[in-house]
Nucleic acid binder design. Structure first.
Lengths: 234, 234
DNA sequence: CCTTATACTGGTCACCATGACCACAAAGGA
DNA sequence: TCCTTTGTGGTCATGGTGACCAGTATAAGG
């Protein structure tokens, strides 16, 4: 019971910060300037301070490295990664977190790290280019994307990806980008409006160029979807 | 980036091991013999060895403390708890795991710890008796039970709670115990049998006293339920 | 100015899963 | 031999969904 046979371990947090950019699910990454994995892209994160809670550390690191000062309305724990050799320097246990923000909450400027930018998730995960991810961050990113895909099925968290006010097409675009499918506009509308508290009508409408103007909505008080939004096969 | 400002942290695993005993959802607990929290009940667990993976540590601790040698067919990570003052001795980060076993896989004998026994989950969580739980293990247990409740909705993991061969009544009892509801036998049967690969028919049947004998089944190859098993309101 | 393309809105219809039942079968116990 | 109990098989109404169609409201183009 006494930790005499335990090696020193480092405790870190990493954040999978997702958004929708140009109709694509995107993730914030930081280019590493030092070894190991210098030049590779890593999830924003870092060591947890003494007496600091995990979610506090996640928010602080996001602020320091990427100046995303936006109060993250949703930050949840994703999973913990502790494979002994995942960091060549020492044993490091990383508690990964998952967060959603609307498109372009801030232009990722004034960053502490060498460089921070948004990457399209599938480009980073399945792109043929020689993009290199640090540590086991590819696995973490895979788990984060999968968690996001299932979370928007049975919660209203998809609305965290859009700025208020938004149209039902905006919200539908979130589902289509995260799931990688096309949804029928009419059926999607019926589903969202039949869920009490998912969105609230503002009465106003907006035209974005071609097509009939769409009614504008805001996020409603509901947090769960019963029954869930069904994800099409492919 | 360099961990110079980090305090030493201890890394532990804790396991929420659930089963069904006497038609009640039950959890394996260990009585602590030493301070802190001597005399309180704790989840089985302990420190992770150097170069040891988290799930290996969880299996080893379960073996050491409770002699549950059964190869756990399902052991999943639950969540990580790292509140700075959760252990009065030092900062300890605990990665909680969740596992399901059939009723009475072994009588919890030859235990390393002072005492290990099964507790009915609701008795431990909401009982009026003066049962004391160590550390933040009440919160971990709450999260584990909630995870189990939702997991059996959309996976076939409920079958991990029964010994083969089993009747549909046995499987239904799992859902009723975990969810705390009553299910219609006929509708439950239709749902299970209409899900390909949930269970496989053995052709044999068994009589357990009163009532018509029930057909015996084994676990099928399916792992997911589409659509999910619906949990009644209350 | 009129036509066309585009996209949001509103509706119908068939299908499927489900909940609430009902009836029968097959065992044990009084 | 009832009678109770429990598993099995079925019907029926309801609600959510996918597929589809029609109408409306805007911008772009001739």
């Amino acid at each position: 019971m006494i930790p005499d046979s335990t090696a020193p371990v480092g405790l870190t947090v990493d954040v999978v910060l997702l958004t929708i950019r140009s109709e694509r699910l995107s993730v914030l990454m930081v280019e590493r300037g030092i070894e190991p994995f210098a030049g590779s892209w890593a999830l924003p994160g870092g060591f947890v301070l003494p007496d600091e809670d995990l979610d506090d550390a996640a928010r602080r690191e996001l602020e320091e490295e990427t100046s995303i000062a936006d109060a993250l309305t949703h930050l949840e724990q994703l999973a913990t990664y502790a494979t002994p050799d995942r960091d060549p320097r020492m044993r490091v246990v990383s508690v990964a977190h998952l967060a959603f923000v609307p498109d372009l909450p801030s232009p990722v400027a004034g960053s502490d790290a060498a460089g921070a930018r948004w990457w399209a998730a599938d480009e980073l995960l399945y792109g043929s280019e020689g993009v290199r991810l640090a540590f086991d961050h590819r696995r973490i990113l895979l788990d984060g994307v999968e968690r996001a895909r299932s979370k928007i099925e049975y919660t209203t968290l998809a609305a965290e990806f859009v700025t208020e006010p938004f149209t039902l097409a905006d919200l539908r675009q979130v589902y289509e980008s995260v799931w990688g499918v096309d949804l029928d506009p009419a059926n999607f509308r019926r589903k969202v409006l039949s869920t009490p508290g998912f969105v609230t009508d503002t009465g106003e409408s907006q035209s974005v160029g071609r097509g009939r103007p769409a009614v504008l909505y805001r996020r409603g008080p509901a947090t769960d979807l019963h029954p869930a939004m069904l994800r099409p096969d492919s």
